[in-house]
Design a protein around this nucleic acid. Structure first.
Lengths: 389, 389
DNA sequence: TTAATAGTTAGATAAGATTACTAACTTATA
DNA sequence: TATAAGTTAGTAATCTTATCTAACTATTAA
């Protein structure tokens, strides 16, 4: 927001220019929210007078932020109203997901929120450095979709590990070379636009916001093929931590009086090792934890399911005592393999928490969806904040 | 903020009136921040033109929000500038603290942030219902300080327990009658102003914001005489939980495979029972946990101190894995009794976390200070949001 | 069936109101 | 006498209300 106040103050001051900016921002906001808008609809939403609404739309059109899509098909008497819309090609949001140990997914959404391109590849990061690989993927995906590279206005990455924004370093990720690369700086220099990096579980947590039965925040317990984690997304927003290491339940010791390096952590207690070990104890085998869970559900292995569900319920109890979230979502490959059966067993073991527990409502790659949602939200905010100077 | 848009939208629109409101809000904000302000100083802060600055100040004066304090003592040539200030008596913030089992503290701050009244009493809540007691204390304290009762614009309460804003009920508090009273409704009806209720540990956490070495958020581990708890105050603000029950570390089982009602929780592991029991094991006695800690420090009982510090460090490790806060503060009566000695021992047992661990920097009643800070901040926001319509 | 007419809606234009800015002026003070 | 505080007058930008034009639908009469 433009202000004439010399030092930046949280409470702005300004003159008539500010008023125009405010009204154009409002119009653009409603355009972003409403897909198409006539001048009359804009007036209903903003309360602006007819001439003002016309002028505001004209300026949005002239600046290239809005386009006209013709006129309404007459449903009532009178002339047909001119239909405006956000110019979808004015700016794009790009989302990148790094999968352990060698996957890269890129997806691009336009300003109207439509997915315009996506691609996934396996890349040997010992041959191509991870930052170069991401840059190449971004360029190729943009080019193949016929998108103007310079119009990519934001890039968000999801990485499997803790990202420390302060030092621009990725920790714990099982991706060759990742800890040595200053990823944000590398991509920002290449793309010439702001880059934001997220933990993959946090991105998956954001994707769960799409679940209509979740409101006012959620905690996601991620039971992944590679490991576990927690995403904390409360009413105030995502909790990422000072060094990007919030939600690392996997590193919490199970027994506070046994905290040595070989003593069990929650990774061993409810993560893939626990599933495999519990499976073996109940005579269920599989190539990985998700497969064991699939087999257990198929066989109706109540002994295994109850033992594991009890542990998961314990973890949810811990999270609830500390964070008291409105909803607890169980996600990740192991949870998906367990399906409604596992959620049901966890609910039975969770007593008072039962009604807060939900299965993941995201179909497909929750991490990729979440990071694309984050990128698109960021794009909208930046367009609102900067497009009208 | 006044908008002409019919339905409330997060992005406002408006006409010239909005501009005046914005500029008066800005002026009021700077008045609240700066104690005194001349027109010239306001111009430097806002960038407003001379006549506008004059007019804005005039309107603030006429509405009773600002007062004149005379003129500057001439340091330079030219006429002496008129000195404006916020009218301290325009509105007041009241803070109430309920102490287990029978204490009530009331404090009142004026719009300039000065403490104008405070009083503490012991009240038998089996004789006087707790809501009546609070009402009486508020009336008496206001009257004795010569403050206009109708000018109390906000009331904040700190209660020892979980406050569920949804149902307006206080849980877990060891105060007779508290669970049955709808405290917010009762006080709001009596006072005719908005009432907000906080958990006491959360209030104490807010008080730690005053610590200059804390920035970007903190987690407070409260080791109180009555019990333990956690306050989570990250960059996004206080995490209170869906039912006001966030930070209840005391209810977390120590061993996830022993979750029965008689199995140990963190209350038993690092709370008052643990201090007394550990003290006994090391030959240190006292009437309560804080006294045991005082004695241990005085005697230099390294065995006791190291055993307890190791447990506290474990709790801090748990909190860091889940929340990754920039700072970890240890507070409460037990922590105060332990002083720098205890903090030092905890740091030694906490390894990588050591540099994040701080003792409480609040002198006096952290809960009462925190809730008064919360009340005053709320007052300032409400004055800015509502005073100028 | 066709053509004229009445009524409604989209959008443009003109006039008036509000607010802020610039520039010149007045007054007080070292 | 120069400088700084504050006021007054005039100008510019923006929004609003009121009015006007054009377009289109629906009704009605020939």
């Amino acid at each position: 927001m433009r202000t004439t106040g010399t030092p930046e103050s949280p409470v702005p001051s300004g003159s008539s220019h500010l008023l125009r900016t405010i009204n154009e921002r409002a119009a653009l906001y409603h355009l972003l929210e409403n897909d198409t808008l006539t001048r009359v609809e804009l007036r209903k939403l903003t309360g602006l007078a007819k001439p003002t609404a016309s002028q505001v739309m004209l300026r949005l059109f002239e600046s290239g932020l809005a386009v006209t899509l013709g006129r309404t098909t007459a449903k009532q008497v009178g002339p047909r109203a001119e239909v405006y819309s956000v110019n979808a090609d004015h700016a794009f949001a790009a989302a990148v997901t790094l999968h352990e140990p060698d996957g890269v997914t890129v997806a691009i959404r336009d300003l109207k929120g439509r997915e315009r391109a996506s691609s996934t590849r396996r890349i040997d990061f010992t041959a191509v450095p991870v930052d170069r690989a991401v840059q190449n993927m971004l360029s190729a995906t943009t080019r193949d979709a016929g998108i103007d590279f310079a119009r990519i206005a934001v890039v968000h990455l999801a990485v499997p590990g803790a990202y420390d924004a302060e030092t621009d370093t990725i920790g714990y990720a099982d991706i060759p070379g990742a800890p040595e690369v200053h990823m944000r700086e590398a991509i920002e220099t290449y793309m010439g636009c702001p880059v934001t990096i997220h933990n993959d579980v946090n991105a998956a947590t954001v994707a769960e916001r799409r679940n209509p039965s979740v409101s006012g925040g959620l905690v996601l317990l991620w039971l992944g093929r590679e490991g576990i984690g927690t995403g904390i997304d409360l009413s105030q927003g995502l909790i990422v931590g000072a060094r990007g290491a919030a939600g690392e339940l996997g590193y919490v010791p199970v027994y506070p009086d046994r905290t040595g390096p070989d003593d069990p952590t929650y990774q061993d207690w409810i993560g893939p090792p626990a599933v495999i070990e519990l499976g073996r104890a109940h005579g269920i085998e599989g190539p990985d934890a998700a497969a064991v869970m699939t087999a257990a559900v198929k066989q109706g292995a109540e002994g295994f399911l109850n033992a594991y569900a009890d542990r998961v319920a314990g973890a949810l109890h811990l999270l609830t005592c500390l964070l008291d979230p409105p909803s607890l979502v169980i996600g990740g490959e192991i949870a998906r393999a367990g399906g409604e059966t596992l959620v049901d067993r966890v609910r039975r073991h969770a007593e008072a928490l039962a009604e807060r527990i939900l299965p993941s409502a995201v179909y497909g790659d929750a991490v990729a969806i979440g990071v694309l949602d984050l990128a698109y939200e960021d794009l909208k905010h930046r367009v609102l904040d900067t497009a009208l100077a």
